[in-house]
Amino acid sequence: MRIFTLILLLFVSFLTTNCGNSKSKSSTQFNNLIWSDEFNDDGPINSEKWFLQTQLPSGGDWYGGLVNHYTNRTENSYVKDGFLNIVAKKEIFNDQGEIKEYTSARLNSKFAFTYGRVEVRAKLPTGIGTWPAIWMLNKNIDEPGAYWQKQGFGTTYWPVCGEVDILEHWGKKQNHVQSAVHTASSAGDDVVNIGGQVVENVSNQFHIYSIEWSEEKMVFSVDDVVHYTYEPSVRDSETWPFTTDQYLLLNIAIESDVDPSFEESAMVVDYIRVYQ
């Protein structure tokens, strides 16, 4: 009887451990590190790996009614003590004939890849109106001022090119992190390919934000806990423009409903690693 009871307890424990959680653990098929930035050298960002995108879109505002300039100044992006700091600041800044009251930075990677796993260990800014993101765009996007556009690859408009949001976080929804996939069939305010989870202390503790991108699907997770899988039943140009190279972007946007008392906050990144 005791042996039967022990077996029963072990079986119940197995069910609880493996079936009791609504979120699953991620697994990986990508283990070969092909690109990274460990941010070990203090000073400006590594210009061999990153491009600071500053050119305003036509109309003088960044998409979504943002109220910030992106700059290439070290006040808004720098490396110190082994960490990348992307800093959003409240300050009057005049650039390209436009005066704005907030500044930040938007980094484009000079590396692009097709399929793999991305891991970013980061702490997020805080404050209503802050909108940090770790994401990817196809290097064929037609976006004047972007790095790959300047290299002659800009042929396709958003969202047809495809966008992958590994992480988004809004200060007005503190600790709720979100991932999304934008395509011709799901974009902007009408995006339906979306998922997220609540993660404690995203602004005070480091967490690992990840995507696994294969030929069939994309799996998004935080600290290996999966919160969204994008796996369309039909993969065509409308739903799956993800068969060619994408590049990484990191930025903090400032929304128009920013808290008037906001002064400064940073996204702090320990490392970025890409595996295939």
Score class of each variant (00 low, 15 high):
residue 150 K to H: 07
residue 243 T to C: 00
residue 151 Q to P: 04
residue 163 E to H: 08
residue 118 V to H: 00
residue 24 S to K: 15
residue 23 K to P: 04
residue 43 G to A: 04
residue 244 T to D: 15
residue 129 G to R: 03
residue 135 W to C: 08
residue 19 C to A: 11
residue 97 G to C: 00
residue 27 S to Y: 10
residue 261 S to I: 09
residue 25 K to R: 10
residue 271 Y to I: 10
residue 31 N to D: 15
residue 171 G to S: 11
residue 236 D to Q: 03
residue 12 V to G: 01
residue 159 P to R: 12
residue 46 N to T: 04
residue 61 D to G: 02
residue 139 K to T: 11
residue 73 R to Y: 11
residue 141 I to M: 12
residue 256 S to E: 14
residue 245 D to F: 03
residue 138 N to I: 05
residue 98 E to R: 10
residue 180 A to F: 07
residue 69 H to M: 10
residue 156 T to N: 02
residue 118 V to F: 05
residue 25 K to V: 08
residue 123 K to D: 02
residue 76 N to R: 03
residue 187 A to D: 05
residue 212 E to F: 02
residue 197 Q to G: 00
residue 114 T to H: 07
residue 207 H to Y: 05
residue 66 L to H: 15
residue 36 S to L: 10
residue 83 F to T: 01
residue 102 Y to D: 05
residue 2 R to P: 01
residue 172 K to Q: 13
residue 114 T to E: 12
residue 233 S to V: 11
residue 47 S to V: 02
residue 102 Y to I: 09
residue 244 T to F: 09
residue 208 I to V: 15
residue 31 N to Q: 10
residue 72 N to G: 03
residue 175 N to C: 10
residue 36 S to E: 15
residue 227 H to S: 04
residue 250 L to E: 02
residue 80 K to D: 12
residue 160 V to E: 14
residue 259 D to F: 06
residue 208 I to Y: 07
residue 45 I to M: 03
residue 265 S to T: 08
residue 29 Q to E: 14
residue 76 N to C: 04
residue 66 L to Y: 12
residue 73 R to K: 14
residue 83 F to N: 13
residue 243 T to N: 13
residue 95 D to G: 00
residue 110 K to D: 10
residue 6 L to G: 00
residue 152 G to V: 11
residue 231 E to F: 07
residue 126 T to Y: 09
residue 237 S to W: 10
residue 97 G to N: 00
residue 128 I to F: 05
residue 84 L to F: 04
residue 225 V to W: 14
residue 225 V to H: 11
residue 244 T to P: 05
residue 89 K to G: 04
residue 182 H to A: 10
residue 84 L to W: 01
residue 15 L to F: 14
residue 147 Y to V: 07
residue 15 L to N: 14
residue 262 F to V: 11
residue 88 A to D: 03
residue 100 K to V: 06
residue 13 S to W: 00
residue 51 F to Y: 15
residue 30 F to W: 11
residue 117 R to N: 08
